[in-house]
Amino acid sequence: MSEERTEKQVLNADEMRRAIVRIAHEIAERNEGVADVLLIGIRRRGVPLAQRIAQALLDAEGVQVPVGQIDITLYRDDLSLRHPYPMVGPTHLPGDITGRTIVLVDDVLYTGRTVRAALDELADFGRPARIQLAVLIDRGHRELPIRADFIGKNLPTARDEMVEVHVSEIDGGEDGVFIVKGAS
């Protein structure tokens, strides 16, 4: 059972940066500008990614898009399976979300359950005109009918693999995306 840990890099810092810039351009294109857009990062690593997308939009469009963050812990569907509970983090939304275009941002899209929880939580804050989903990595294995609108990279994985996204704001060091297998 003591399988050795192996780590394979799938994106380096430059590739991550380009993927984020491309997502930002796609968001502006899809929404014909970003006047109504709010970026909301899902804690934790979705938050710095949302801030970087906002920076890329500022560079490309000259518009400062508001960035918020959402912590979905209190909306999880697996809390009863997790002992003890995970620590709750803060949720801050930049103003009223009703009528706006929300772009939810997360690092990895996997089962879709995190996104389900985020959608439920947002519905308790207001009624956005539309909600779109941007992820750096889509690793497949969905358990709910959820898909991303903007994807940095599609990454076919096995269920026993893990995808680790390193962002310097949280993890320190260099940005990068890794597939990790074996002992965690």
């Binding site: 804690r43 003890p84 995970p86 990895v108 996997y110 995190t114 893990m162 680790e164």
Partner: peptide, 11 residues
């Protein structure tokens, strides 16, 4: 849920 331990568990 994103495939790695994003949540800080209480120790």
């Amino acid at each position: 849920m994103t495939g790695h331990g994003t949540a800080t568990m209480l120790e």
